[in-house]
């Protein structure tokens, strides 16, 4: 269980992929959305956001979301 609880509000997602870019940069040292531990599927009208099993809830995705689609809260045990 990671440090943060990541909250998802896919209605606010714009498909900018800032979350996937930031995540991949942290874990692969390159900007590579396909290597991210979070997955956005954006068809325009609809959108789903999924944290992949390897996600350790570091919260970098939420740090880079400008639209409120991803927010983070510190878990109780981490406070």
């Amino acid at each position: 269980m990671g440090r943060y609880e990541i909250r998802i509000d896919s209605d606010k997602c714009t498909g900018c992929l800032r979350c996937q870019l930031a995540c991949s940069d942290v874990y692969t040292k390159a900007f590579n959305p396909s290597a991210a531990r979070i997955l956005v599927a954006f068809s325009g009208a609809d959108c789903t956001i999924r944290l992949l099993p390897e996600c350790d809830a570091c919260g970098v995705c939420a740090d880079h979301c400008f639209f409120g689609a991803l927010t983070k809260n510190k878990r109780e045990s981490q406070k």
Binding site: D11, T14, C16, L17, R18, F42, G44, A45
Partner: peptide, 8 residues
């Protein structure tokens, strides 16, 4: 919905 180009 609002939509954005990658990284915007």
């Amino acid at each position: 919905r609002r939509a954005a180009c990658v990284s915007c």
